[in-house]
Write a protein that binds this DNA or RNA. Structure first.
Lengths: 97, 97
DNA sequence: CGCATTGTATTGGGTGCCCGATACATTTAA
DNA sequence: TTAAATGTATCGGGCACCCAATACAATGCG
């Protein structure tokens, strides 16, 4: 895993295979702006190089789907994310549910 | 605000004024390792330069406390953090409490 | 076919994060 | 008053992220 962007992308793809533009649009929903190609494609390339996602051309789109390795990486990243930000999150969400 | 490290530091200091070493130790608790001086002090310097925290020497320590500007910046950063990672967090914590 | 549209990809430049190494400052202990 | 310990700070290099600009690839339409 590279960083939090890769984490978020992997999380998105784990729910449903997507192409670059879809991913950018999804990220735009929860950010101040839509990530540009120079942000999104290098991240996808790295994730693919590490075998966490797999590309397949469909017409002019390249659809990425998560691999088994990717699911493991996602689980690790998720664990680490909550380890790091757990306290801050629990302060907001309340720890007793 | 710079990034997530600054966010986390600001959050720590908002709870209680701290010096660099204390901050590094707190961060170590929720990370894989303790951040080195080259990580922690530049971040503190930037936060101080932006007026979000304020240093004061106490013996050989420099204790930082949050400013009013800092509390505003923290609130903004917190909002943005949950905007970006809200879905991922809710998946883990369950959105109905 | 020729051309616009849509989607993918790379490059260059800037910033934030991170470490290891080094240096400086202050206090404590010998 | 030296010397060690503790804490602060900077420097250099590397990687992740981010954008703007540019180019390429594939499809759709006149």
């Amino acid at each position: 895993m590279r960083g939090l962007l890769s984490f978020q992308i992997l999380w998105l793809i784990s729910r449903e295979p997507m192409n670059g533009q879809q991913i950018a649009l999804e990220l735009a929903k929860c950010r101040s702006s839509k990530p540009t190609p120079g942000t999104i494609y290098p991240a996808l390339k790295e994730l693919a190089n590490k075998g966490l996602i797999k590309p397949s051309r469909k017409g002019r789109q390249v659809v990425y789907h998560i691999t088994e390795e990717g699911r493991k990486g996602l689980a690790d990243a998720r664990r680490y994310f909550f380890q790091v930000f757990g306290e801050i999150i629990e302060e907001e969400y309340g720890q007793v549910c």
